[in-house]
Amino acid sequence: MGHIKVLLAAAVFTLMFAATGEAAEDQCGQGHAHKAANAVEALHEVTEARAVSCENKVYVSAEVAHRYRLQLPEVRKEATMALSDAFDDNISFHFSTDLKVWQLLSRLEARVNEGDITKKETIRELTAVDEHMKG
């Protein structure tokens, strides 16, 4: 009996440990996202920025003040420059001013901040965002 008790205790302990370990890693860290949002919002043409990050990927969208929309290509270039200044080469950032990307990232950012989304789901949502950033 003694052996079994020890084994059981060990099993339970391991499971608990594994569970807490998983919980800690179950969400995407948003450190890069905050950094990216701040970098883009620092531009005077940008009124607001949304960003979600996971591991070494950051997805950023910005709302540009309407009077600057005639210079949208330049604003995009500036934002990309600001982001490449903010991040090292090992972090890949994706920037878009598209309304769809803005809507998707706004929703996703809110969910991530509330913490009611798993890492797996976040990655899946970000893949959907990525689809709209091509071309």
């Binding site: 598209d98 309304l99 769809k100 990307v101 809507q103 709209h132 071309g135």
Partner: peptide, 11 residues
């Protein structure tokens, strides 16, 4: 854009 899977380009 809002209710379907279209972006500014494809809408």
């Amino acid at each position: 854009i809002t209710f379907f899977d279209f972006n500014e380009q494809t809408a």
